[in-house]
Computed example of a mutant assay.
Amino acid sequence: MKLNSSQRKLRERIIRVLKDQGFKINPHVRPKGCSKTTYRRVQQKARFEQLSLHKKILIDSIKKVRDYCRDGNEIIPEKISLELREIQPDSFEEILFRWWNLIWWSIPYQRSYGRQMRFLLWDTTHDAPFGLISLQSPVLKMSVRDNYLGIPKNELDIWVNKSLNAQRVGALPPYNELLGGKMVALTLSCDEIREVYREKYKNYISIIKGRKLKPELLFITTTSAFGKSSLYNRLKYNGEVVAECLGYTQGSGSFHILKELYEEILKFLLSIGINVARGYGHGPSRKLRLISLGLHHLGLPSFEYHGIKREFYLFPLVKNLRDVIQKRKRPNWLSRPFDKLVDYWKERWAIPRAERMPEWKNFKSNNFFKKTEKMLKEL
């Protein structure tokens, strides 16, 4: 379509903002390099945008969060005792979850869609948050997943609605230096998450086709942060593979289209008569579809592809997942109690790491929070 003056300006602005973030355009969008440092850099602007949007609540919460963060030398690895807490709205745990979710990771926070569950791993011995898990509805179509599992196209809504995607998985300081991320990743496969899901969604009806589905959580998927994952790679429990790598994503997403640009794209779509309804009932793919449509009409096809390909991982919660999907077999559930996973993680990773690399003791809570508070006030 022929663009008018304001539409051309929007097109030029999108290109300029992408270049400012560290992307090259030749003619497609790609990072200027393929190192993890480069990948972090191109996501920095989107991250700071989210921090700015939540600046007040982050600063207001900082004292409460700091009270429950421990110095590295306060942690006794062999005495770590964890419990899994589901996040309830307006709870103390939600305050901590929201703060760390925005602050700690270089990948910017993105709002969850559809079915959602959030968990906080809590170290009861040291009275401190250990790690976060954020689960949400997965996208309906994902070729690397659908081909591997052999999901019939007319049954996509059934099996996708018996799964969740892990949007955030990781350990908090100082536990991250004790390979706490391995523990959080193991937790994705625990019995307790499956049981919480069963209770929470016992009356769930699929929005897409109005089917009432059994509240069975059969598998969880997730992606690496940057390219190959050290967190999920070779993740095992008692010799069993916990996370199966199915390949790489195509490198599409929406983080590189900043919120302000997204709002301008929506206004542009409305101006040319396109429905931009979103929210409940439209699924997690809606934002990306609208961005793709807007970019296409602006003469920027495929600009939703940012070029950062991520490893795609599957966490089966049953032993016979493909038979359940392809042959309608009864699920043969894996048995992985959370407390057993904790014991395994401590013996396999935490204690050996603590003895081999004592740098984890160097984390100073006050230094971290002073630096973080200064950064927030300068935004």
Rank of each mutant, 00 (worst) to 15 (best):
R11M: 10
E12Y: 11
I14H: 02
R16F: 15
H28M: 10
H28V: 06
K36F: 07
V42R: 03
Q43P: 01
A46I: 04
Q50H: 00
H54W: 12
K55S: 06
K64V: 14
Y68L: 13
G72T: 06
N73L: 13
E74R: 15
I75W: 00
P77D: 02
R85D: 05
E86N: 11
F92N: 07
S106P: 05
Q110H: 09
L121N: 03
A128V: 13
A128K: 01
F130N: 00
L140E: 04
S143Y: 06
D157E: 14
G170Q: 04
A171N: 07
P174F: 07
E177F: 12
G180D: 00
K182A: 07
K182R: 13
T187L: 00
R194G: 08
K209D: 15
L218S: 00
T221D: 04
T222F: 03
Y237V: 06
A243M: 05
G247L: 04
T249L: 08
H256L: 05
L261K: 02
I265T: 01
I272S: 13
A277S: 14
H282T: 13
L295D: 00
H297A: 05
H297V: 03
G299R: 07
L300I: 06
P316M: 09
N320M: 06
L321W: 02
R328L: 10
P331F: 08
W333K: 01
R336K: 14
R336D: 04
D339E: 14
V342M: 03
Y344V: 01
W345T: 03
E347N: 13
R353F: 03
R353H: 11
R353L: 10
W360A: 13
F369W: 12
K371G: 04
K371R: 15
T372E: 06
T372V: 12
